[in-house]
Amino acid sequence: MIIVGMADSAVARKPVKLTTLGLGSCVGISLYDKSTGVGGMVHIMLPSIEQARSKDNRAKFADTGIPALLDSMVEEGAYKHRTTAKIAGGASMFSFNSNTQLNIGERNVTATKQSLKELRIPIIAEDIGLNYGRTIILDTENGELTVKSALKGIKTY
């Protein structure tokens, strides 16, 4: 099992599993090409690199992290046009919030969907929003995404 940290990404080949832990407002994107068994995961924190002060880490942003992940998967042998996406996260953990963090979870989800649309990667499952954290595991054996939570049980997509 490869653990993908916050603002981090990784690519793996069947039968290795990929996981990212404790997604709140962040979004976890898992990409998978069934024909080759190549999978990838990225844990993004922010929608866009454009206004960022530091642009060193592309995996931090939806608009750079997702294309970069797809490129790395293609390098590993995945076919872009056979790759599908499953996404999770983008919660609002607290109902409060100051202006700057207004719906950051929602903005991350919107940017994620936009990026996948531009890349023509279909989203075949999503477990997003609401107010709880998620840990996700991608099984590159079959492309199944398991979503675990503290109190809301386990779901498989």
Binding site: G24, L46, F94, N97
Partner: peptide, 16 residues
Amino acid sequence: DMLGAIIDHILIEMST
């Protein structure tokens, strides 16, 4: 909840 999920929006704000 999960620690990461509880604090990530704060880290997001800081990271800007």
